[in-house]
Amino acid sequence: MNKHTKLAILIAPLLLIAGYIASDYYLEHQAAQDKVFYLNQQNNCDVLADKCVLESGEFLISVSDRQGTTQINATFPLDTVVLMLVNDDNSQQIYQLAMADSPYYWQAKTDLRESIPRAGDSRKLRLVAKIKGGSYISEFVSTTISR
């Protein structure tokens, strides 16, 4: 093995590591770019009865309400969550949810329970959950089935 082979064998792993680091940087940069995914609701949604699940592939978000505190539980940790209660005139009340115990749980006091107290009442909601620059958005209707 002469000096050129030794040199090349020495340099190649360094280039390999440099390539690995650069690839990681490139992929991280791509992942950080804004992307929008749509969450679809599974079956009928009744937030007050704790029966409202939104899904996008393996990502699931459960929306529930306990004594006026609307709660979000996600299968992946979230960075921010915004919930909007849509009025009849299409205006909306916007709630920035606060993290509960961990980035999987978010909550805020809302008027949702007060606005749909009786069976048959319904309210349109919009949700925007952000994960590392990716936005998961959904528009769904919560219909109170029974009280």
Binding site: N2, K3, H4, T5, A8, I9, A12, L15, L16
Partner: peptide, 26 residues
């Protein structure tokens, strides 16, 4: 990775030829 390994030997072979051309081979 296969290409990187091939490059090592290709570089080595080309450099050996270059050494001979310039009379500085080992």
């Amino acid at each position: 990775i296969y290409t990187f390994v091939a490059l090592i030997f290709w570089y080595s072979s080309k450099m050996n030829k270059l050494d001979k051309e310039h009379g500085v081979e080992e």
